[in-house]
Write a protein that binds this DNA or RNA. Structure first.
Length: 754
RNA sequence: GAACUUGUAGCUCAGUUGGCUAGAGCGCAUCGUUGACAUCGAUGAGGUCGGAGGUUCGAGUCCUCUCAAGUUCACCA
């Protein structure tokens, strides 16, 4: 054995586990399984410390495997729709290209190839950290089998009337060219101005003067005495000299601005709501591209930012701008590109979530699904109880397309964007361009289509013909699924659930579902955990996991988030190469309170790599002692020496506490106790004490060592297995691999009591 | 605006249901070490556990208030 622990031996140990198939469980109806589905990493992302936190799951899995439970930890990777397309587009931009230079098929293929490379790296890095994942059950979110089930769920939702296409105000990022769900919007505080404008008989206050062109009414609060007389009269939109009605609605805040609100249903959610209530038209003055339209000369074609300046100039010239006051408020920005979100009316696909959330709420309340730590339960319930319909469509190419088809002959008003033979972008309604371009050319170069919300669609397309007119000019919806629509079904799809006929689900599904624990960072509690539960209950009537365990994020030693710009990132892969996976794993759990931030520093990693080395060297010492006494007995005597009794008693206590700490998710405490015992009790005290003893020390020495190797194994799998493999066969004959050796239990309890 | 979390040695943090003479790692000081390990050992300095009040035989641990830091949620034009 080497004088120091060498992390370079880790790959061989991992290979040993793979060769012996220790991570691949066998279905055993007599035993309850232990199952964790790995929170599928973004296939395109290199590993960061967030991924290294899978250590918690590995500890649980390795512990249960040693208990003898058929243990499945199922790995996978996510195509991560918007995230990945965004990264890819940045790459395109570096080469002076954009997504608009390609038709959707070409773009999709390019992203696919790009992701494939990184997906392999991702897998390799998970292995580097020693994660005991069952690679024979690996899945990728864009596998045909996975997609097939996801599409089936879409159809089932539709059949159950839980899915609809609707035109509402959505959070649209004109830069990313797609709508987002509410969860994907960040809010930032901003210093802006509130502009008071003259609307004839009434004055209004607005932050967005550039949208006055799409005004359809002015609303006041019915309780507002100063405006009572004006209700029912007409206001005049400046610059356009358009008259619009003055209406009353209690959503208007009397004390804000002038107490009168201009109603622009197309560009504000509150306005849209009021507009719907009062049956007002929705006029849009901003296109999906983000440019102004339907306004007046000088404004059309501008982006809102310039349009605002220009509009204000014009208003001022005409004396319609009464005053300007500063305003501190919050605006929504795109979580990806940080541009201001433009609320726009766009047809989107929605899932009715209220009825779906009900069983989830019940299950959480009854604690059929437990939440750890408990404090998140309230937050989670609050969200579930106030859930809004879920926009599941995204206007990007990277992901499965929504399986709905439109007939262009039935709906010639469908808007099309495509690249023609010469590589030019063509936009227009089908009726206006069909003479000039063949359907085949349109289809081949298609980027997006935009069907009015009234368009009929069909969900089964077997023979490429329209069920109404039998025509063949049909196109598939170009919207793709929100990534979470796929990953929300991950526990079901990866285990082999059959949506159409649940009875035909795979044996894996029948055995391993519901899974035992779902561990993740709390930031995707709503995004992912919530959706998985919704789908779990909807499709199977059961919770997808019995326990939701939330861990905190990894921060640097100053408590700051790790980020490239701060330069405080510790890369897991580099750390593994330098100090070994065990050191990193221990550093991530050692002394960390459940669900508190995990402060990681090079110091902490160093400390734990010293510990790993200590395990190695103490074991080396034990083995050298064995060599000195080749004829020594290995069996523990019935009657122990009082000193031995003492240490065995302490060891028993350690076994009990570590076991219970793991059961209660107190990994920080467990690792701390293991560290303290191994280093100070075992090494500093016990090993020193036996240096003068002879062969008689061997049985207790080996018992102490092997028991501790077992207890340490879930935390530091590599060094413990490496040492275990060095032990003489007499110790390992029955259980040749530590990873599947049995979890220790206290011994000599009777001796202790007497 | 609402909710939640955190505040313990120089630094980063443990401390489960109240029993602690308050711990660890790193750092610091002094000494030691040719055979398990200098990625080591021994000894030590360093804290009135953010502040104030309360419950209790007993509080870092429970309650109230207060100060500070942070996070999340919310339709305010």
């Amino acid at each position: 054995m080497d004088k120091h622990y060498q992390p370079s031996l880790e790959p061989d140990i991992y290979q040993l586990w793979l060769d012996k198939k220790v991570f691949t469980p066998k279905i055993n109806p007599k035993r309850k399984p232990f199952t964790i589905i790995l929170p599928l990493p973004n296939a395109n992302d290199p590993m960061h410390m967030g991924h290294a936190m899978f250590t918690i799951e590995d500890i649980l899995c390795r512990y249960h495997r040693m208990l003898g439970d058929p243990t499945l930890w199922l790995p996978g990777a996510d195509h991560a729709g918007i995230e990945t397309q965004f990264v890819f587009e940045k790459k395109l931009a570096q080469n002076g290209k954009s997504r608009f230079d390609y038709d959707r098929q070409t773009l999709y293929k390019m992203i696919w190839d790009y992701v494939e490379k990184n997906r392999k790296i991702n897998q390799f890095q998970l292995k580097e950290l020693g994660f005991s994942l069952d690679w024979t059950r690996y899945h990728y979110s864009l596998e045909p089998k996975i997609i097939e089930q996801v599409l089936a769920t879409f159809r089932k939702l539709h059949a159950d009337k839980l899915l609809y296409r609707g035109e509402r105000i959505v959070n649209y990022c004109t830069h990313c060219g797609t709508a987002f769900s509410e969860l994907e919007i960040d809010h930032v505080e901003k210093d802006d101005f509130l502009y008071y404008l003259d609307y004839g008989p009434i004055q209004i206050a607005t932050t967005r003067p550039e949208t006055i062109f799409a005004d359809v009414a002015v609303a006041v609060n019915p309780q507002d005495k100063k405006y009572k007389k004006l209700i029912g009269q007409q206001a005049i939109v400046p610059l356009m000299s358009k008259t619009i009605p003055i209406i009353a609605d209690d959503l208007v805040d009397i004390n804000f601005g002038t107490g009168a609100l201009k109603i622009t249903p197309a560009h504000d959610t509150t306005d849209f709501e009021i507009g719907q209530k009062h049956k007002l038209p929705t006029i849009s003055c901003i296109e999906l591209s983000g440019k102004m339209t339907n306004t007046i000369d000088g404004i059309n074609g501008l982006y809102p930012k310039q349009a605002r300046i220009k509009t204000l100039e014009m208003l001022e010239k005409q004396g319609k701008l009464i005053k300007t006051t500063p305003l501190h408020h919050t605006v929504g920005i795109c979580y990806r590109c940080k541009n201001t979100i433009e609320p726009l009316p766009v047809p989107q696909w929605y899932v009715k979530t209220k009825p779906l959330a009900k069983p989830v709420i019940d299950s959480i309340k009854k604690e059929d699904t437990e939440v750890f730590p408990k404090r998140f339960k309230k937050t989670y319930l609050d969200w579930m109880e106030n859930i809004h319909d879920w926009n599941i469509s995204r206007q990007i190419v990277w992901g499965p397309q929504i399986p709905a088809w439109y007939c262009l002959d039935c709906h010639p008003d469908i808007q099309l964007n495509f690249i023609d033979k010469n590589g030019n972008i063509v936009s227009g309604k089908y009726q206006d361009i069909k003479e000039k371009y063949s359907f085949e050319d349109i289809k081949k170069g298609l980027q997006t289509l935009n069907a009015p919300v009234s368009s009929k669609y069909f969900l089964e397309n077997t023979d490429n013909s329209c069920p109404h007119c039998s025509g063949h000019h049909i196109l598939q919806e170009t919207d793709t699924f929100d990534t979470w629509f796929l990953s929300g079904q991950w526990p079901l799809t990866t285990l082999g659930f059959n949506v159409v006929d649940p009875k035909k689900s795979s044996p894996d599904f029948n055995y391993f579902y519901p899974t035992s624990v779902l561990d993740t960072l709390w930031d995707i509690l709503f995004f992912w955990v919530g959706r998985m539960m919704i789908f779990g209950f909807y499709l199977t009537g059961k919770t997808p996991f019995k326990m939701i365990h939330l861990h905190a994020k990894v921060v640097d030693e100053k408590g700051q988030k790790m980020s490239k710009s701060k330069g405080n990132v510790i890369n897991p892969s580099d750390t593994v190469k330098q100090s070994g996976a065990d050191a990193l794993r221990l550093a991530l759990v050692y002394g960390v309170a459940p669900a508190s931030n995990i402060a990681l520093s090079q110091d902490k990693i160093k400390a734990q790599s010293h510990f790993v080395n200590k395990i190695w060297n103490a074991s080396r010492f034990a083995l050298m002692t064995l060599d000195r006494f080749p004829k020594a007995s290995f069996t523990l005597p019935k009657k122990l020496h009082p000193d031995d009794q003492k240490i065995i008693k302490k060891l028993n206590k350690l076994i009990t506490s570590v076991t219970s700490d793991i059961e209660k998710y107190r990994f920080g405490q467990a690792s701390e106790n293991l560290y303290q015992f191994f280093w100070h009790q075992f090494c500093d005290s016990y090993l020193e004490s036996i240096k003068n003893k002879g062969a008689t020390a061997i049985p207790v020495l080996m018992h102490l060592l092997i028991t501790q190797l077992k207890l340490l194994h879930p935390f530091a799998p590599f060094v413990t297995e490496a040492v275990y493999q060095q032990l003489p066969p007499i110790f390992t004959k029955k259980q040749p691999i530590l990873a599947t050796a049995s979890w220790p239990s206290p011994i000599h309890e009777k001796t202790q009591k007497s």
